[in-house]
């Protein structure tokens, strides 16, 4: 059963993380790390933001020295699939794939 509060009050603070907005997504951006030059433009443009910087040494890269740089990783719990990262990527390293649920 749902919890329905009077006047739609959300009783506890800081709970917007519970709302996994990734469920709204129709198209899913997938980073192709063999092409990604780790310029972080997608990380800057992501409006959610649901692209995080992570240590990049274990990810594929187009050239070995790039592995020293941090890598962008998409958090699919909150990515709504707006496609801005796909559009902004200068090396076309992000595929946009229709999701079937």
């Amino acid at each position: 059963m749902k919890e329905i509060t009077r006047g739609a009050v959300v009783k506890d603070a800081g709970n917007s993380v519970v709302n996994k907005t990734g469920s709204w997504r129709t198209f899913k951006p997938i980073i192709n790390y063999e092409k990604c030059i780790r310029c972080m433009i997608c990380w800057i443009y992501c409006p959610e933001p649901s692209i995080y910087k992570e240590d990049g040494k274990d990810y594929d890269a187009p050239k070995e020295p790039i592995k020293k740089l941090p890598v962008p990783v998409i958090d699919y719990d909150y990515c709504k699939g707006c496609g801005i990262c796909v559009n902004e990527c200068p090396v076309k390293a992000i595929d946009f794939v229709k999701e079937v649920k």
């Binding site: 749902k2 329905i4 009077r6 006047g7 739609a8 009050v9 959300v10 009783k11 603070a13």
Partner: peptide, 21 residues
């Protein structure tokens, strides 16, 4: 007889109500 604006008991008023609720 309802939750009020209170800095010591923070709550969200006027939140989003999706089709599920």
């Amino acid at each position: 007889e309802y939750l009020t604006l209170d800095a010591n008991n923070p709550a969200t008023f006027g939140a989003f109500g999706s089709p599920s609720h």
